[in-house]
Design a protein around this nucleic acid. Structure first.
Length: 490
RNA sequence: GGUCUCUUGGCCGAGUGGCUAGGCACCGGUCUGCAAAACCGUCCACUCCAGUUCGAGUCUGGAAGAGACCUCCA
């Protein structure tokens, strides 16, 4: 399977040629959401980034197993391994079973992902469904001497681990620096060092989510679930681990430590991180309270939004930036994405109406190679989109009679659009008519035909009235040489 | 404080040591009863200072500003 896909590997700090561990199989693990709140714009970024990777790898012919977890236990509210479980807290506040909370927000997440046309992962494991695997992993780590128990809780012994392996190679952190920075143990702590992290936490009496173990009734640490579930489903050595760059430290660093401590080597070949979405230059996040949920974006119900934005607009907005750069939210940027997307999708419709001629004068020769090259260069979707816009320009010019295209080239062009816009970028036309709407469609056509008649009579008062009233209802009407076109905005 | 990253035109956002990124907006034109769309064209750029180079927004050094991580976060 010869290709030139290169991915930026955070571990090596450079782009590397992607070579799977076991061609043609590819294993990807991506950190999914902690389901205690509505998914926001930030969640859309890794979902769409790795959806693009998933789709492209499949296009290249790989058999991809994509695992994205649901964190429904173990993610603590506060600082290092104290504080309340996020989901348990929400459950207590709303007087529900923790699993009711998890289920509710999992459903919300799924629904948002469906709207964004994000393909479902091959496996979507839940942390709470893998307690046994996590306990087994802790036992392994303890056997190897890299964990210790205190009062029923088990902690990872970072200092001891660092003697044999090196802690911090992903995030570029040096343990001595961490030591120097955080040497303030209050004696009360169960941890030997502040940077040690919990593998198992003994549950306080009021803690609702708990499982029995040989150490205590308790629950697993947050970092553990990803290590346990990724290796369970993808093997002890798999290809790609993805996630937001904010998870790089400590979460992913700890994952590496856990895997190495348990099995002697890291499970991951390529660490791939998407950057953050910012708002006014600042990271959009829960803690800052400056996030906009996807639902709010879809409905326009947030004070910062001047209008609603469709899921495809959001998707296009995200794909128009490279995944490793920050992307700044603004109404202006969303609106320009909306228009750009509209133009691109309009061209796909135009493409279906183009008639082939004997010769091709439009320049589409290198289009496919250019598109592939863009994706091969660390998934450079903005470059890909730029090439597609060049094609849009050509398509419109052909439609306007400025260029011509022959049959073979037209088929090729249609194929390229199908593959890159719909299959790989995962865009879709949101205005496709359901059968129920066909009647309405006929009515609109009827009105517009009346308008044509009125225009023929030079009864512009009537023709404008029809157009303006339809426009008020949300119809976008364009006159053509041979009739009209309309779409229903919103 | 430590580690790291970024600074591109009105806005968003790519990229490379020398050749137009792209989108949106604006302006002029073609088309149209008008408008929209489409097409053609114009305009607008690489934070600052110094260096390397025949040539740097692209490499090096410095300055300023911004951000991320170091605590939960996609």
């Amino acid at each position: 399977m010869e290709h030139l896909l290169h991915l930026y590997n955070t571990l090596k700090r450079k782009k590397e040629k992607f070579i799977p561990e076991n061609t043609p199989f590819v294993g990807i693990y991506v950190c999914g959401p902690t389901v205690y709140g509505d998914p926001h714009l930030g969640h859309a970024r890794p979902a769409i980034t790795f959806d693009l990777l998933f789709r492209y790898l499949k296009y290249l012919g790989y058999k991809v197993r994509y695992v994205r977890n649901i964190t429904d236990v173990g993610h603590l509210e506060n600082d290092a391994d104290t504080g309340e479980d996020k989901i348990a807290k929400k459950a207590r506040v709303e007087q529900l079973e923790p699993m009711e909370i998890a289920q509710y927000y999992t459903d919300r997440y799924h629904s948002a992902m469906d709207s964004l046309n994000v393909q479902k992962p091959s496996i979507e494991p839940r942390a709470s469904g893998h307690i046994i695997e996590q306990i087994q992993m802790i036992e392994k780590i303890m056997e190897n001497g890299f964990a210790y128990e205190t009062n029923g809780s088990v902690y990872f012994d970072v200092e001891n681990y660092n003697k044999k392996f090196s802690y911090g190679k992903l995030s570029g952190r040096v343990l001595d620096d961490l030591l120097a920075n955080t040497r303030e143990l209050d004696g009360q702590s169960e941890k030997r060092n502040s940077f040690d992290f919990a593998l198992w936490k003994k549950a306080e009496p009021e803690h609702i989510m708990r499982w029995p173990s040989r150490w205590s009734d308790g629950f697993p640490g947050w970092h553990l679930e990803c290590s346990a579930m990724s290796t369970k489903y993808l093997g002890k050595k798999f290809d790609i681990h993805g996630g937001g760059i904010d998870l790089l430290f400590p979460h992913h660093e700890c994952e590496i430590a856990q895997s190495v401590a348990a099995q002697g080597y890291d499970a991951v070949n390529y660490w791939v991180h998407n950057n953050m979405i910012t708002i006014n230059g600042q990271k959009m996040g829960k803690s800052l309270g400056n996030f906009i949920t996807l639902d709010e974006l879809f409905t326009g119900s947030h004070k910062l939004l001047v209008q609603a934005y469709s899921p495809m607009t959001i998707r296009f907005f995200i794909l128009q930036a490279h995944y490793r750069g920050t992307l700044d939210f603004s109404n202006e940027a969303l609106q320009s994405a909306e228009k750009g997307l509209q133009r691109m999708l309009a061209a796909t419709a135009t493409l279906d109406k183009i008639k082939a001629t004997d010769t091709t004068t439009a320049s589409i020769k290198n289009l496919k190679a250019d598109c592939l090259q863009a994706l091969n260069d660390d998934l450079n979707s903005p470059i890909l989109i730029a090439h597609l816009f060049d094609a849009v320009k050509n398509i419109n010019a052909i439609a306007a009679g400025l260029y011509t295209i022959n049959k073979a080239d037209l088929e090729e062009l249609k194929n390229i659009f199908q593959v890159f816009i719909f299959e790989i970028l995962g865009l879709k036309n949101e205005n496709t008519m359901s059968s129920r709407n066909e009647v309405m469609s006929d009515v609109v056509n009827l009105m517009l035909n009346l308008r044509i008649d009125a225009k023929a009579r030079k009864d512009f008062e009537t023709s404008d009235k029809i157009r303006n009233e339809l426009a008020k209802l949300g119809f976008d009407i364009k006159d053509k040489k041979d009739g009209f076109e309309w779409t229903l905005l919103k």
